[in-house]
Write a protein that binds this DNA or RNA. Structure first.
Lengths: 194, 194
DNA sequence: GGAAAACAACCAAGCGCTTGCTTGTTTTTG
DNA sequence: CAAAAACAAGCAAGCGCTTGGTTGTTTTCC
């Protein structure tokens, strides 16, 4: 369906994928370039042939997820017209990235944001705002349609937080599958009429 | 009202308070013992007179918040009987710790959990479960009272995530005060009847 | 009740080790 | 046979933590 975030054919991508895995598992600061090298089967020095610095890897990983999530959400919204379906798309994309094949990279984006230098954070913020602009529009439409009474901006923050935090407790492969989790999150935002 | 988390009279507490501030701002791994020493005005070596290791400080900070939050919530629940008021107490305590005077320590508990060794995480988990047991009961009662239709465990995870994530975007002192934020969060869980 | 012992708090110095990264050379590969 | 990818070796800086010793304040005890 969608191409994988990192192409296993390309050496640099293999490196970034390994870095994402380790950054996610241990955190950026606690991961050494020697560990990253070992993960892909090369010595630490060789790694700088593909990348300028350790922070470069963090930046590249985040950049990759940001544009991939944006593309995925835009594609999904393009084929959804009614407010409720669009609302579900928001949640679905977020949860699929957080718990699907791109889980490591997405986790790094969410939890290692502060490890990035301020200058590079500013660069990424552009792409990130574009993604959240989509959210804002969908949530505003949902409010107009009477699906929710909360202020769209507030709802965006709360919903995004609730979903992001699933990375701490939700384990795929258990009794609750991703589809069911998506439904539950939708119920949180969109309580049944009574 | 409640005693501060760290007593400025006690040298060890001053140290832990400074550590919490730095751990929160830069992350545990990215903070050096030399920085912590400088923050309280002593040399890095002297710091080990009060504490056995750098990780000890992280542990002590988290331990302090955990029991303080538990005490605060228990006290608040003791004087609240109806389900909705109790629900509000849950949110209120969480947000007051996240954005009040104990913000640094609470942020450390929330965001540096993985930096702690597994053995010590297990120790803290006991106190943490006690806190969440209070949540569980309040949310179950709320469901019984017909205030919400979501499964209490699910709601607990979503709500806690939404609140925890406020530390990334909510800045106290702005247009939205803590009381108003609490109301908004309550509205998320408890949509107006219609 | 006053000397002796203990203690809390810190400094100055530095040890052993790890860190991110560089350099020069060799191997692999299209 | 060149370009890409890796190795081997190591540097400078910084890391957590230890050591031995100096203060000033309590506590102990005959």
């Amino acid at each position: 369906m969608t191409p994988p975030l990192f192409d296993p054919e390309k050496p640099r991508d293999r490196l970034l994928s390994a870095a994402a895995r380790l950054f996610h598992r241990q955190g950026f600061a606690a991961t050494t370039v020697r560990e990253i090298g070992a993960e892909v089967g090369i010595l630490s020095g060789s790694l700088f042939h593909h990348v300028k610095s350790k922070e470069d890897m963090l930046f590249a990983v985040m950049e990759r997820v940001i544009s991939a999530m944006h593309d995925a959400l835009r594609a999904e919204l393009a084929s959804a017209s009614d407010p409720q379906t669009r609302l579900r798309a928001l949640i679905s994309v977020e949860l699929r990235y957080l718990h699907g094949p791109a889980a490591d990279a997405t986790g790094v984006l969410f939890h290692e944001w502060r490890a990035l230098s301020e200058a590079r954070r500013a660069v990424l913020l552009d792409g990130r705002s574009a993604y959240f602009a989509l959210w804002q529009q969908v949530l505003t439409d949902a409010q107009t349609a009477g699906l929710t009474t909360l202020d769209p901006t507030m709802l965006r923050q709360f919903l995004h937080g609730a979903l992001a935090w699933t990375s701490f407790w939700y384990k795929p492969g258990g009794a609750l599958d991703l589809e069911a989790l998506t439904d539950q999150a939708l119920t949180l935002v969109l309580p049944p009429l009574r």
